[in-house]
Design a protein around this nucleic acid. Structure first.
Lengths: 211, 211
DNA sequence: GCATTACGCTACGACGCGTAGCGAAAGCGC
DNA sequence: GCGCTTTCGCTACGCGTCGTAGCGTAATGC
């Protein structure tokens, strides 16, 4: 980020390699120990840096784990698979693959839990993890509209609301299936889920006014 | 549970009032301090019992918080609101109301995170929290089938699979909306969600056998 | 009463937290 | 090359929590 030439910044620059090593060590510690038994001293030892170096860069365990887990979501992408159903299935499978990794399982839920009492942490999670996922929803919908699978949405407010709903349904279902129900989101499950979601979104003829 | 006459159990019986006080104190501590800053010594002080008494009944923080949070879900019920859509909206609103309470927000996600590395804890969560929710799904579907809103499902295996899917979608969406997106699951959102879910479930013509 | 179990209280070692202070290293401008 | 600045590794420290041991006391069943 602010490496090499940060505008007149004098003195010894921070080691970028240390950042990489620390985040990797954090993920390794998450795998071996889980969230509660993970200590910053252990992470520092694994990374080959001093504990003080770690504290100079991260305020605490929460922020460190958010950054460590966020890197796992870098691999999320949305290749054009030809249809909206295939696109949804693809991204859900990718998401499920990430959540299948132990460093994501224990780390992600823990920082989300902490974020309920820490607004700054919630914002950090939002920008570095959630927004990255949500972007795929918007991209997938735009692509489906271009294909004619979804009608164009003139009302931008309503469109944003629908995108939020879809996002909560997709991410929530996968997370719940994986972490609470403790079942793998395999191909069968993803197909069933996609079918329900897609029918729910597309076969809305006219809003029944009895509700 | 094993109160009053536990089959030849001699000696001074455990105080049931202490259990109640400890669990209430745990929820109060969750509200004031959140998960990470909650200490068992503080809970014992709040409950008016000795720390050793607390350790004689619960193995640790995880188990204690699970039991404390589980009591919040006792109030979940499914009154007959006349239609499947209304039933779903009702239970989703109830679930959202529970998740709006701070003691549930911070506690529930934290123990779920811990359960990724503790099989016994996961089982405890499942029996005392998750199954209680899932029962409502089964009850609501049976009621909808009796009304004729849903077709009877002869294949019990497929029926169980569908129930699991619905459960993950409902609970997952509400949890994600409430805790990750940090937005309240108000009436508008619940109606939109129910509409998508219901259309997805009912307007499935015949399952294509290509899957 | 007597055995049995739970309770309140105190004290303890162990451990992780987060910080301070030091000398050394690695950059930049001259 | 030389100084200035910032980072780094290391050690040490006070603090708080953990989880347990030990003891005397209280409450129950036989």
């Amino acid at each position: 980020m602010q490496s090499s030439s940060p505008a007149g910044r004098a003195g010894r620059p921070r080691s970028a390699a240390a950042d990489t090593a620390i985040l990797a060590a954090t993920r390794a510690a998450l795998v071996d120990l889980g969230w509660s038994k993970l200590t910053l001293g252990d992470v520092a030892t694994r990374a080959g840096v001093a504990k003080t170096t770690l504290y100079r860069r991260w305020a605490g365990k929460n922020e460190l784990v958010v950054d460590a887990v966020a890197e796992l979501f870098d691999e999320l992408e949305l290749p054009d698979r030809g249809s909206l159903a295939a696109d949804i299935e693809g991204v859900v499978l990718q998401f499920a693959a990430i959540l299948a990794r132990p460093e994501a399982r224990s780390g992600l839920m823990a920082v989300v839990a902490e974020s309920t009492r820490d607004e700054a942490l919630r914002e950090r999670i939002r920008t570095s993890i959630v927004e990255r996922q949500k972007r795929l929803v918007l991209e997938g919908r735009a692509r489906a509209q271009a294909r004619g699978e979804l009608p164009p949405e003139p009302d931008t407010t309503e469109a944003a609301r629908t995108a939020d709903l879809i996002f909560d349904m997709v991410a929530g279902a996968v997370v719940h299936r994986t972490l609470v129900s403790a079942e793998t989101a395999n191909g069968d499950w993803v197909r069933s889920f996609t079918q329900v979601l897609l029918w729910g979104l597309t076969s809305r003829p006219t809003e029944p006014d009895d509700g």
